[in-house]
């Protein structure tokens, strides 16, 4: 499969490239400097529709990893209008498979998170007005509306805390004591490697197995808190976390 990756050289990008790179032909794009890669590379700005449309030519799928958090204008440019540009590109080139990513609170904002348990990806979104969540939620809504009038399948993968297991005591040589309890405020954590494999599962899932054109998944490892549910990601994507990050929530 020919896959366009937007925001491919950010935090998550290299892990996605690792997960997909030996199975697909990748076109990695980012606004920043090029990564060290053997894959095709283009420097583009996702807020520029021509950049995105040009980059999508000849692709079978788009994976959107682009994100900008603190700067208000650029956050809207990237997180909101960037999604519009991505969908215009998908329509222009007849690309059916679009995979979007974002933080869990673009769906489960304070209105849910402070009160409820068993939060799942099929709830109505309540992002609130925090800039990051709000702008990503608007982008997600744009994507959804496009699927109502175009033959596009949208899979959205929601993440929050991402860890390298080796750094938190769950891998060789690490100590978990410093990290203990870090996962208590928002118990929603995943290893970078498992995040990459989740995107691979989404990319490779046959479209005919998607129940609807818009499917959203909460991606985190198996956690005991009961705050959120990753059942749908496990069942529909066939994704299995390999790292359980016990040192975040286990005293011994």
């Amino acid at each position: 499969m020919n896959i366009l990756i937007l925001g491919g050289n950010g935090m998550l990008g290299p892990w996605v490239v690792d997960a997909l790179g030996d199975r697909h032909r990748l076109r990695i794009t980012d606004i920043g400097e090029p990564p060290e890669t053997t894959h095709e590379w283009r420097q583009i700005d996702v807020s520029n529709v021509d950049d995105v449309v040009d980059s999508a030519e000849g692709m079978d799928a788009i994976v959107n990893l682009s994100v900008l958090r603190p700067h208000r204008r650029v956050a809207f440019d990237v997180n909101t209008r960037g999604n519009y540009n991505m969908m215009v590109a998908a329509v222009t080139h007849g690309i059916q498979r679009v995979i979007n990513t974002g933080p869990h609170f673009q769906l489960a904002g304070p209105g849910y998170e402070d009160w409820d348990f068993d939060l799942n990806p099929d709830m109505p979104p309540q992002p609130g007005t925090r800039l990051y969540a709000h702008t990503k939620a608007l982008g997600q809504e744009i994507d959804r509306v496009f699927t109502t009038t175009h033959d596009i399948y949208l899979q959205t993968l929601l993440f929050y805390h991402l860890y390298d297991p080796a750094d938190i005591g769950n891998g060789p040589g690490g100590s978990g004591l410093e990290s203990l309890g870090r996962d208590m405020m928002v118990p929603y954590s995943i290893a970078w490697q498992d995040a990459g494999s989740a995107i691979r599962c989404a990319v490779e899932l046959p479209l005919e197995r998607l129940p609807t054109r818009v499917e959203t998944y909460m991606l985190f490892t198996d956690l005991p808190h009961g705050k959120f549910s990753n059942t749908k990601a496990r069942g529909q994507l066939g994704w299995q976390p390999q790292y359980h990050l016990e040192s975040l929530w286990n005293k011994s």
Binding site: R73, D77, T129
Partner: peptide
């Protein structure tokens, strides 16, 4: 249009 109706409204 998207900019004005999202970012400007937000601001």
């Amino acid at each position: 249009l998207l900019d004005q109706h999202t970012r400007c409204t937000y601001n």
